[in-house]
Amino acid sequence: MSAIEIKELTKRYKDLTAVDRLNLTIGEGELFSLLGVNGAGKTTTIKMLSCLTRPSGGDALLNGKSILHDSGGVKSIIAVSPQETAVAPLLSVRENLALMAGIHGMSKAETAEKIASLSEKLGLDTVLSRRAGKLSGGWQRRLSIAMALISDPEILFLDEPTLGLDVLARSELWDLIRSLKGRMTIVLTTHYMEEAEALSDRTGIMKSGRLIAVGTPAEINARAGTERFEEAFVKLVKEAE
């Protein structure tokens, strides 16, 4: 069963077409990575799918709910961890999580239970009382993902989740993302080829707003006739120019 069905999705800004007639289906429980160089249209696609930006054309159904006609319904089943960490810096980790729980209408008891289980799963127990703004980049990303997970979303968008992190923090975050696989549908955007290769069930490569290739990393390697995924990416993007 498909979780996301994108049909002819387009976004135009005056004379720039950021996303050009995107068609894509993502399965339930799948981890799908959107790859592309800067300005390829990845973030704009996520913004449209999460109802932050209204498309200029086309539509997308998220578990059957239209981003055009049922944005409230879409918002009730998704969560986004934006490119920037997007945490409240002067609140503690616990308070940040409680804020998101409150915004989703959870009771005090539900909130406490949710914070306890999430912090255990994501290893946040040791920093629950620390102010979010004082945490390292890796911990802030972890908190950012925890804030997205608090509502038990059916679809999770992770926009460049490891951008700017050191190797160790990135590896830890990969483990965290792997642990979420299968429990929800995940759409991830990234600049890092090895990240997409290591985590994704399938990847899509975008160039100038268009989707130029879709498949498993192995399928994309086969299509490009290369052995390494990064080489396949470079070759396909150059061919599309």
């Binding site: 932050l52 986004v80 934006p82 998101m100 915004i103």
Partner: peptide, 13 residues
């Protein structure tokens, strides 16, 4: 500027 509002705009608020 920190995208906190952007995150919250994807919630039912």
């Amino acid at each position: 500027s920190s995208s906190l509002l952007q995150r919250l705009y994807t919630t039912p608020l």
